[in-house]
Amino acid sequence: MEAIILQMIEAFKELSYLGIMLSLTFEFIPAELVLPLAGYWVYEGDMNLYGAIFAGSVGGVLGPLTLYALGRYGGRAAIIKFGKYCFIKEEHIAKSDQFFVKYGGSVAFLGRFIPGVRTAVSIPCGMAKMNVWKFIFYTYIAMLPVTAVYVYLGYALGTQWEQAGEIFSQYANYLLIPIVLFIVWMVVKRRKMNLQQ
């Protein structure tokens, strides 16, 4: 399966930065493969590092946006029916629902860092009819640092780009905890300000 996905990604390479965006639009193509490979293309001199990071971040929003639309316009029945094509199971949706109830709109950001929630988290955002621009903003600022790290690792590792996922998983908490804490602090501060008004 991974070999087929890699062939698809290589085909998308012909479209340059647009290819990176499009490959990430399909939720069944793992970003953990696409982004380090994009970094390797930077290493080879086929792309610019910042261009690849930007394209990866935009693509990282397009995929969740399709699930957001499915949740918003299709409802739970459509998600259960079509979610399997994106490898989304009913238990993923249930976990994401609970997470959304607990954290509200900020789930579009925070959920990107939680295993078992990150893929399906867009669905309850759509079902709750969360403002689409707010959803895009939260998703983009969540995807930007993750994308930057993966692409840079692929670039730095060069021909060993396939090791990027393993390295990222070892240090992910150290990289992401400060970002998550900062956003949580912002959300808490904003809620306090709203209560005082």
Results as ranks from 00 to 15, higher is better:
Ala3Met: 11
Ile4Pro: 02
Gln7Gly: 15
Tyr17Lys: 06
Leu18Asp: 05
Gly19Lys: 01
Gly19Pro: 03
Met21Phe: 07
Ser23Asn: 04
Phe26Cys: 00
Phe26Lys: 00
Phe28Glu: 00
Pro30Asn: 12
Glu32Leu: 11
Leu33Trp: 01
Val34Glu: 00
Val34Tyr: 00
Val34Ser: 02
Leu37Val: 01
Tyr40Glu: 02
Gly45Ser: 08
Asp46Asn: 12
Asp46Thr: 07
Met47Gln: 04
Tyr50Asp: 05
Tyr50His: 09
Ala52Ser: 14
Ala52Tyr: 04
Ala52Phe: 04
Ile53Pro: 04
Ala55Arg: 07
Gly56His: 03
Val58Thr: 11
Leu62Arg: 05
Leu62Tyr: 04
Gly63Thr: 01
Pro64Gly: 14
Leu65Cys: 00
Leu67Ile: 05
Tyr68Ile: 09
Tyr68Asn: 08
Ala69Cys: 11
Leu70Ser: 03
Tyr73His: 14
Gly74Cys: 12
Gly74Trp: 11
Gly75Ile: 10
Gly75Gln: 06
Ala78Asp: 07
Phe82Gln: 08
Tyr85Pro: 02
Tyr85Val: 02
Tyr85Arg: 07
Cys86Ser: 12
Phe87Ser: 10
Phe87Asp: 11
Ile88Phe: 04
Ile88Asp: 01
Glu90Trp: 10
His92Asn: 14
Ile93Pro: 01
Ile93Phe: 08
Ala94Met: 10
Ser96Ala: 15
Asp97Glu: 15
Phe99Asn: 03
Phe100Arg: 12
Val101Gln: 15
Gly104Thr: 10
Ala108Leu: 04
Leu110Ser: 11
Gly116Val: 08
Thr119Asn: 13
Ala120Tyr: 01
Val121Cys: 12
Ser122Arg: 03
Ile123Ala: 08
Met127Ile: 14
Ala128Lys: 13
Met130Pro: 06
Tyr138Glu: 03
Pro145Trp: 03
Val151Cys: 09
Leu153Ser: 08
Gly154Trp: 00
Ala156Phe: 09
Leu157Tyr: 06
Thr159Cys: 00
Thr159Val: 04
Trp161Asn: 01
Gln163Asp: 05
Ile167Ala: 07
Tyr171Thr: 09
Asn173Asp: 06
Asn173Pro: 01
Leu175Met: 13
Leu176Glu: 14
Ile177Val: 15
Pro178His: 08
Val180His: 07
Val180Ala: 15
Leu181Trp: 13
Ile183Asp: 10
Met186Arg: 15
Val188Phe: 11
Arg190Glu: 14
Arg190Leu: 06
Arg191Asp: 13
Lys192Ile: 11
Gln196Val: 12
Gln196Asp: 13
